[in-house]
Design a protein around this nucleic acid. Structure first.
Lengths: 197, 197
DNA sequence: TTCGTCATGTAATGGGTTACATGATTAC
DNA sequence: GTAATCATGTAACCCATTACATGACGAA
């Protein structure tokens, strides 16, 4: 999870740990702010695994720059080739466990870097899960509605509506994906008549 | 979390571990299905702490009942007096950390057993958190909207709507609570001149 | 010169999961 | 009698958090 998020953010541009964390909570609103206690060790592990390396900014710019005294400055990381591979691997990989809430959010956030097919697969996976859950809630609600107290009922119904709402959202997204993906066969029916790209 | 959920469910009626788990995922749709690997050890700890004890069903009913051979049958737990205290304690206790999602759900599920004041406090706490989050998202969205890719934008906006929706829900709930709770001071200012409420 | 914030890190701990091992009960 | 499922439990691990320690740098 953290790993995927890191790879994804670093895919954009090299960053050091501290800023990475800011991005995690702010830039992508989905992620929670992982603590440094998990962030830094993870960065180290990933570096050791060969997915990241330190970025010296090409050693360019001011050679005798202001105070890089004694070291202990920022440590800027960037993706290695293996890191990029690993990123794609993680994006595509998806045991059904993987669609649970947070993970889905992270995957979704990097859809821009994801294969169209994988996107649809992930969206559909998520939707199935939610539909299962929806049916579960509906069933128990139908069976136990009368026995439930006011609050439990409120909670269930609110939950149910949330799920229904998200299912609709996903359905729209899936349709959009399908429309924008060129259907495998049927290659561009009419090469003429096209204005702007 | 698990602890509170267990205390809450056991508050209703004595249960054994296995059934407890079914209830966790089904009866209260809010909870996820904690694994036995966490459930049973937790039950043991809680028993050792004196919050639970085994329930022998009052030794009543059929004395030579069908097959309670050798033992290793169900272990039915019920709350002790300390357990009930502990439950109330956990319900009321709420460092602001505590309003995060899951915890809120569990607290809410037991609102029937919770003090009216505590209920309002929890609802308002949750709402503030969500409002903070909402503002955060709105701000970053306003600042970075143009730089965001299609998917990130979708995600943010969907998230924002979810939050807004929940805030409205909470506001309604709070109002309902307030109406049903007799206002502390101000004992009916003017018994006359009031048509409909 | 001191305070806030940027910046990196470690150690202890927490709260859960997975995988595994085992036995009892019920339905076929 | 055997398979499914009810029922209890342990051990190893995972992924994160908290609390702590350290230090650089800019602004008041």
């Amino acid at each position: 999870m953290l790993e995927l998020a890191i790879l994804g953010l670093l895919h954009g541009s090299p960053l050091h740990g501290y800023e990475l964390r800011q991005r995690l909570k702010a830039t992508l609103g989905t992620f929670r702010a992982f603590s440094y206690g998990s962030l830094y060790p993870t960065l180290r592990r990933m570096k050791e695994a060969g997915w990241l390396c330190e970025d010296d900014g090409n050693a360019e710019v001011v050679a005798g720059a202001p105070a890089l005294t004694g070291r202990r400055g920022k440590v800027v990381y960037k993706l290695t080739a293996e890191g990029k591979e690993r990123f794609q691997e993680l994006l595509a990989e998806a045991g059904p466990t993987s669609w649970e809430d947070e993970t889905f959010g992270v995957h979704f956030a990097f859809f821009g870097q994801t294969d169209p097919e994988v996107r649809v697969r992930i969206l559909e996976g998520r939707r199935s899960r939610l539909e299962e859950r929806r049916e579960g809630v509906r069933t128990t609600l139908a069976r136990t509605r009368s026995r439930l107290d006011r609050y439990t009922l409120q909670l269930q119904e609110h939950g149910l509506e949330s799920v229904e709402r998200e299912v609709r959202w996903l359905t729209e997204l899936i349709e959009t994906e399908r429309r924008s993906t060129v259907p495998p066969a049927v290659p561009t029916p009419n090469p003429e008549e096209r204005g702007a790209p």
